[in-house]
Design a protein around this nucleic acid. Structure first.
Lengths: 223, 223
DNA sequence: AAATATTTTTAGATTCGCCTAAATTTAAAA
DNA sequence: TTTTAAATTTAGGCGAATCTAAAAATATTT
């Protein structure tokens, strides 16, 4: 088991995240993500290719290989476990955890992370609702999504909020939305991305994209 | 408030520790402590002097100034709080915590450390019995002595052993004594210098002088 | 006090990760 | 299909932290 530098880990993680949207990642996209210059990215890609962590041909974009993916999942695991710890145990707000976890995630000890996982009760989702890979790299199927991601006409259950602010809680209370409430999206408005929501025993109402983004729901994905 | 690199912090911490033994620290001693070469030490000392963290004249050794000391205490605080966390919450053995804490201590966030401190209940000593500086840099006075030296009827905390042999550890295990256990001497027998020990929730028992000599405890002297 | 040994510093390279500017390749437009 | 634009790579440098080898300062012996 090799050890990777903080920079290398940052690149691997960034490629991993970008890969989920485009299946091949461009030098420019990576540079933007890492907040560095394209020339620096090229240098690092050559290095990571030499270490056999990714597929890379000049001008043709980059993609993690199996080993790169394994490492990426390990970094993501560390990051999200720390986020969970910060929010759950140290009472950090959901919006404060990312920055600190960004530093903690680079502490390598496998034992540390596995013990932390156990201490936290093997949580499956971080405070943002993203799944936490287990010690083998497996993640729960993301039955948990932001309300904005919920497909039309599928009933889902509210299971949490990303933003603990009083304002959001006030809004939810006004709409009688709480943990466990079943909701369904009837319509999505392209103009402002607001959503038309249907709940049992209440008339249809609309909710802003901003609010919907901070509400987590889970549902059965129909494979 | 400036930020220091991992290397700079390692040097500051090493100087701090060496200072407690010799009051001026030599280049060679520092090189040995950091596991680097004297030439590298000289380079770093020039840099830290430029940053006004220490007193240094070529060939004359080095010493932290007030600002350097402040930073050192902050690093020590981070290190020992993480050690406490690892031992107390993640059930690491007291001999495993140092290495991992060595990495965690460089995570800078002030808020993280203060929250961690609070979460842990503002512990005053780490698992080795060393005092943890509070957020202002103040530490409890530590009186660490062999169990044989502990005054009668004063509660002290086991903080280490002089002899790591399996035999001693077996004896300690049998008596349910581990790092952090509170003990009190009820009686000292002049004949063989054995001691009568009282611990919470267990009946009084006796321990030989030989064993007691290899157990370190610390207690707060009653000024 | 002179000679020798030890410690410490200086000089000059090396690796890592980053940068700017210029050259090259690929993609898009006319 | 040229031409133009955009993306990407190469070339050459820079700062941080380290190293080796050689020079300089300090300590120790004789």
């Amino acid at each position: 088991m090799v050890n990777y530098s903080t920079s290398e880990e940052d690149y691997i993680k960034a490629i991993y995240h970008l890969q989920s949207h485009q299946q091949t990642v461009s030098t420019n996209a990576l540079a933007a993500e890492i907040k560095t210059k394209p020339a620096s990215v090229t240098d690092m890609l050559k290095k990571l290719k030499a270490k056999k962590l990714l597929h890379y041909q000049p001008y043709q974009g980059v993609k993690l290989n199996a080993e790169g993916l394994r490492i990426a999942l390990d970094i993501v695991r560390r990051h999200r476990l720390w986020e969970y710890f910060l929010a759950e145990k140290l009472k950090f707000g959901w919006n404060e955890v990312h920055e600190v976890a960004e530093e903690l995630e680079h502490v390598g000890s496998k034992k540390l992370i596995d013990r932390l996982d156990e201490y936290l009760g093997f949580p499956r989702f971080d405070p943002h609702g993203d799944p936490i890979p287990d010690h083998t790299g497996k993640m729960a199927i993301k039955t948990q999504v932001r309300l904005t991601e919920l497909p039309l006409n599928i009933t889902a259950k509210v299971c949490g909020v990303a933003d603990q602010s009083t304002q959001l809680l006030e809004l939810l209370k006004h709409r009688s939305i709480s943990i466990g409430t079943n909701v369904e999206i009837k319509k999505k408005f392209g103009f402002d991305h607001s959503l038309e929501i249907k709940m049992r025993n209440t008339p249809v109402f609309t909710i802003s994209e901003h609010a919907a983004q901070n509400i987590f729901v889970n549902y059965e994905p129909e494979n």
